[in-house]
Design a binder for these strands. Sequence first.
DNA 1: TAAAGTCCCTGTTTGC
DNA 2: TGCAAACAGGGACTTT
Length: 283
Amino acid sequence: MPELPEVEVVRRGLVPHVVGREISSVEVLHPRPVRRHLPGPIDFADRLVGRTLLEPARRGKYLWLPLDDGEAILTHLGMSGQFRVDPPGTPDQAHVRVRLRFADGGPELRFCDQRMFGGMQVSDADGGIPPEIAHIAPDPFEDAYDPDRVVAAIRRRRTGIKRALLDQTLVSGIGNIYADESLWLARVHYAQATDAMSAPRVRELLAAVRTVMGEALEQGGTSFDSLYVHVNGESGYFDRSLNAYGQEDLPCPRCGTPIRREAFMNRSSYRCPRCQRLPRSRR
DNA sequence: TAAAGTCCCTGTTTGC
DNA sequence: TGCAAACAGGGACTTT
């Protein structure tokens, strides 16, 4: 499931394959992945033909391919989206939804998405951040990221800390996996009340977020059951480094207590029942 | 199956 | 007190 590190790996992987290439044709094989492009699939295709791609950019889990006219192809991988680069004529892998062909006759770009939570749309980005994602906060690796502001915003909330970490308008790029891993590293319970956390504690947790996602990035991202792969089809290795997520009943690497899985927000949360305890309520 | 991330809807709280 | 805006939480969407 692609979160920030996986999306960044994809972005870097795309750079040598798309920059400076002119799109010659676009094939939309399923309407759902372009559902956010309100003028429809035909307009989506028409708008792109003849355009040249610039260097891919990213904020949080969103990735966009800027075009030479200031617009951009804004994409989100959802939970199973992939970009694949393959020579023309290569048999399609499963779930190819959109295909871009290029004027140079070289490898084509395929957007594959089994579960179709992801999507693409042409955005009037005007050379900057697409307006559709202007409400998304900077991610921890951007220059615009300001930890002080994020700490303050989190402490103003009245909710559980994991819910706040997953709120892309506070800080972007964090999904279920890295939320659990960061909470484990910082020894924080997922349900910890945000307004009861000290500023240094929140700052510590945000530092853990950066640490965890930075390490994942170095290892090429996390991979699960082939849902996330590099543009060449290879998967990342960070899943071998997970300490909490998906580790139910396995010993906590820190204290040996079995990791527990609990339902939270219609999802699973993994935590060490010893390292990550909920403090007694202050109210 | 259960699992994922985002959007949308609803209900509540806050601020002027 | 009244109203609008912001916030919080839950479900839908989709596939295997």
